[in-house]
Simulated assay, not measured.
Amino acid sequence: MPTGVALRDAREQLFDAAERILLRDGPNALTSRAVTMEAGCAKGVLHRHFADFDAFLTELVLDRIRRIDHQSAALRASAGTGTVTESLTGALMTVFGSVALAIIGLITSRDGLRARLRQAGSVGVPVLTEATAMIASYLAAERDAGRIAADADVDTLALTLIGSGHLLFAGREGTPPEADAVGRVIASVIAGAVPDRAP
């Protein structure tokens, strides 16, 4: 492997390479050598930017969590537009249609990674925890706008939606459920919390 290949943004290219491996081959195929080969760089590049491979994986997960934070801000800002069901369907399709399921598999398969994520302040199952907070925040904004009942328990609704979404998307080997199927589940979960208008 050539050592003189310049990487414009080495961290991001390494993260993207790791995502491709995760999606294509699963968490067991993710090694430092596989990542650098996929990125087309020398193995030393990874170790110049990260103390060790677990540090790399920790930063990968934290970077993907930051992406959910950005998605959360956009989703919350969309409150009051479209329908609640459409907005939630889009959010779940984005969260679970991305590399999130592969990241969750990675986290559950590596004890050292889970320990480092806990040290970094992550709680619960990273990615799922942040996605649940995103949905709860959006539902709270819709509650404030009067499109979700004032007494709705948005935290429980968010947990239910993320758990249902995870089950809908898990184990599908690259074939996500149709948006209509996701929307039907969402409409059923939130039906009791939506005032007398269509969700």
Rank of each mutant, 00 (worst) to 15 (best):
A39I: 09
G40W: 01
G40Y: 02
C41G: 08
C41F: 00
C41P: 06
A42L: 01
K43S: 15
G44N: 13
G44I: 03
G44R: 02
V45W: 02
L46E: 07
L46F: 10
L46R: 01
L46V: 08
H47E: 13
H49V: 01
H49W: 00
F50D: 05
F50M: 11
F50N: 10
A51G: 11
D52G: 04
F53Y: 12
F53M: 04
D54T: 14
A55T: 14
A55W: 00
F56C: 05
L57T: 12
T58P: 08
T58A: 13
E59N: 12
L60V: 13
V61N: 08
L62K: 06
L62M: 11
D63C: 07
D63H: 14
I65D: 05
R67I: 04
R67C: 03
R67A: 12
D69P: 00
H70Y: 11
Q71H: 14
S72D: 00
A73T: 08
L75E: 00
L75H: 03
L75F: 04
R76S: 13
A77E: 14
A77L: 09
A79M: 06
A79Y: 04
G80N: 08
G80K: 11
G80C: 11
T81F: 07
T83I: 05
V84E: 09
T85C: 12
T85G: 07
T85D: 15
T85P: 05
T85F: 01
E86Y: 11
E86F: 09
E86P: 01
S87W: 01
S87H: 13
S87E: 07
L88M: 10
A91E: 03
A91F: 03
A91S: 13
A91Y: 08
A91P: 04
L92W: 02
M93Q: 15
M93N: 14
M93L: 15
M93D: 15
T94W: 10
V95I: 15
V95W: 04
F96N: 10
F96E: 10
G97L: 01
G97Y: 07
G97P: 03
G97D: 03
S98C: 12
S98K: 12
V99E: 08
V99K: 01
V99A: 11
V99R: 00
V99C: 12
A102D: 05
A102E: 11
I103G: 00
I103S: 01
I104P: 07
I104H: 06
G105K: 00
L106P: 03
L106A: 10
I107T: 09
I107V: 15
I107G: 04
I107N: 01
T108G: 13
S109K: 00
S109V: 11
R110A: 13
D111V: 15
G112M: 09
L113C: 05
L113S: 09
A115L: 11
R116E: 07
A120W: 02
G121N: 08
G121D: 07
S122V: 15
S122G: 10
V123R: 04
V123K: 01
V123E: 06
G124N: 06
G124M: 01
G124V: 02
V125R: 11
V125A: 11
P126V: 09
V127H: 04
